[in-house]
Write a protein that binds this DNA or RNA. Structure first.
Length: 466
RNA sequence: GGCGGCGUAGCCAAGUGGUAAGGCAGAGGUCUGCAAAACCUCCAGCAUCGGUUCGAUUCCGAUCGCCGCCUCCA
């Protein structure tokens, strides 16, 4: 039984989709004003795991991740540089796609951009104006929170007594609003040269929250199954999305809200001021593989804070390598005729444990433990005897199932060796037979430089790319 | 000021009212010409102090420490 921690109830609930067999999921994507950092990617990998696991469970999934390609930072910076906002965001969108692909994240079914959905946003704002949940003030449009009694149901924020202490951070333009809690749906743009769009209620640009209401409902309907995102978006972003969407439609917006916890670096928060806001590219430049980064970022359940350290990343690198070796070892193994089926039950058990771990609010830590236990068991068994063909197939099948969700084993190496490498390996074998180990080692070193790692086994020489 | 989370071995960490998954690192060993890969063995009483209980790491309270939210933020 698949269960998720639902922020709305603060409890783990059984996942029941709106339509039998279908799952409609929206996750808040990046603001493409810069290279995304590994904290961002932790959340997006969480989304990817959610996406993949729903498919693993047999759901027909519609997975939507937006790109926020207009906001104050983007507008200000592109204005400073004298370019259009699209010119400013384009390279970061390309980079984001590259990074996501490198991190083995599946592409979403839809990846709507805010600037392509201004019309849909305007429609929602108009509906809110018509039913009294929005009002105009100094040319801008604000949401009237007092007209939405459910406000706060997601973040559980009560506004008695806590706005006081936080008041230093309340918007400076609060005087334009009826209530300090009200937020902008549409911000007046009176400079005709500045970035803005025309609407019946005046020229302006959208507030931050309205885009997600517009895009999620457009692709998934007015009510959908799961809305995911980073924990920091819970308030105010998601709370405001609910207010806007439910305020406009009168229907429940999303049934499940899933929030990914923060990533810490060396037990400290990630912050520009601390200089630890690493981008994916920064980490790659230090020589770490994307697979190891993915492994580390998914090794802790999404609902818990994850402490990122380079020591941990180094460990992840080794671990991923071990997993890859395992799959190669099994798939290259010669099979025997034994009738001992112990590997069959091991594979079955591992698969069951994996699924029950993932069913439990995507407990990736336990899911990985199930995989590692299988690896150890089968490796140990293979040190003793050959697998039967059925056993080998069962283990490889289990690995493929695991990896369809986790995506940490990487590509299989099926490349054919080219002739030069092939003949070098043969030459080395000849030297070894003649016990000319100096020559054999020299050839091995040469191959290593060509990125070919050799392993001598009882069954002959095995190789892999380094 | 209001609210939430966390504190488990050198590191990353799961988890449970009945004496603690998994990975990395480390130590010793097997195999190997040597490596590599793999295997075997070893390595914690769960922040502190109280309480509840036959029994707590797991429940309650307090203390200390860390992280977060209270309209920029994955």
């Amino acid at each position: 039984m698949l269960r998720f921690h639902n922020t709305l109830s603060r409890e783990v609930e059984e996942f029941k989709p709106l339509d039998e067999g279908k799952a409609k999921v929206y996750i808040c994507g990046p603001t493409v004003w810069n290279f995304a950092h590994i904290g961002n990617f932790r959340t997006f990998i969480f989304g990817d795991i959610l996406h993949r696991y729903l498919e693993f469970k047999g759901f027909d999934v519609t997975y939507v991740m937006n790109l926020t390609d207009v906001d104050d930072r983007i507008i200000n910076e592109s204005a400073e540089r004298g370019i259009g906002i699209d010119d400013m965001t384009a390279p970061f969108i390309v980079a984001f796609h590259e990074d996501m692909a490198a991190l083995n994240c599946l592409e979403p079914d839809f990846e709507p951009r805010a600037t392509d959905h201004i019309g849909e946003m305007i429609d929602i704002i108009r509906a809110l104006l018509e039913n009294g949940k929005a009002y105009e003030s100094d040319g801008s449009i604000y949401y009237r929170i007092s007209a939405f009694p459910d406000y706060g149901k997601l973040s559980k924020i009560s506004f008695e007594g806590n706005i006081e202490g936080g008041s230093a951070r309340v918007d400076t333009d609060k005087y334009d609003k009826e209530d300090a809690r009200d937020f902008a749906l549409w911000k007046l743009v009176d400079d005709p040269d500045a970035t803005g769009w025309d609407a019946s209620f005046g020229r302006g640009r959208p507030g931050w929250h309205i885009e997600c209401s517009a895009m999620s409902m457009k692709y998934l309907g007015e009510t959908f199954d799961i809305h995911a995102g980073g924990i920091d978006l819970q308030f105010p972003h998601h709370e405001n999305e609910i207010a806007q969407s439910e305020g406009a439609t009168g229907k429940t917006f999303a049934n499940f809200w899933l929030h990914g916890e923060f990533l810490k670096i060396d037990n400290e928060k990630m912050a520009k001021s601390l200089g630890n806001d690493y981008t994916f590219r920064d980490i790659r430049d230090r020589g770490f593989s994307a697979l190891a980064i993915r492994y580390l970022l998914l090794s802790v359940p999404y609902g818990k804070q994850l402490n990122f350290t380079f020591e941990g990343l180094k460990g992840a690198e080794t671990t991923v390598e071990r997993l890859r070796n395992f799959r190669r070892l099994v798939s290259d193994s010669t099979t025997g005729n034994g009738i001992d089926g112990s590997a069959l039950s091991a594979a079955r058990t591992a698969l069951e444990q994996f699924e029950s771990a993932m069913d439990d609010d995507l407990n990736t830590s336990q899911a990985l433990a199930a995989i590692h236990n299988l690896v150890k068991e089968i490796n140990s068994l293979m040190a003793d005897r050959m697998l039967t063909k059925d056993e080998r197939d069962a283990v490889l099948h289990a690995v493929a199932k695991f990896d369809s969700v986790l995506g940490i084993f990487g590509e299989e190496e099926k490349e054919v060796l080219d002739e030069e490498i092939d003949s070098l390996i043969e030459e080395r074998e000849r030297a070894r037979r003649e016990r000319d180990f100096a020559k054999a080692d020299e050839i091995r070193d040469r191959l290593a430089e060509m990125n070919i790692i050799l392993e001598d086994t009882k069954d002959g020489v095995r190789w892999k790319r380094g």
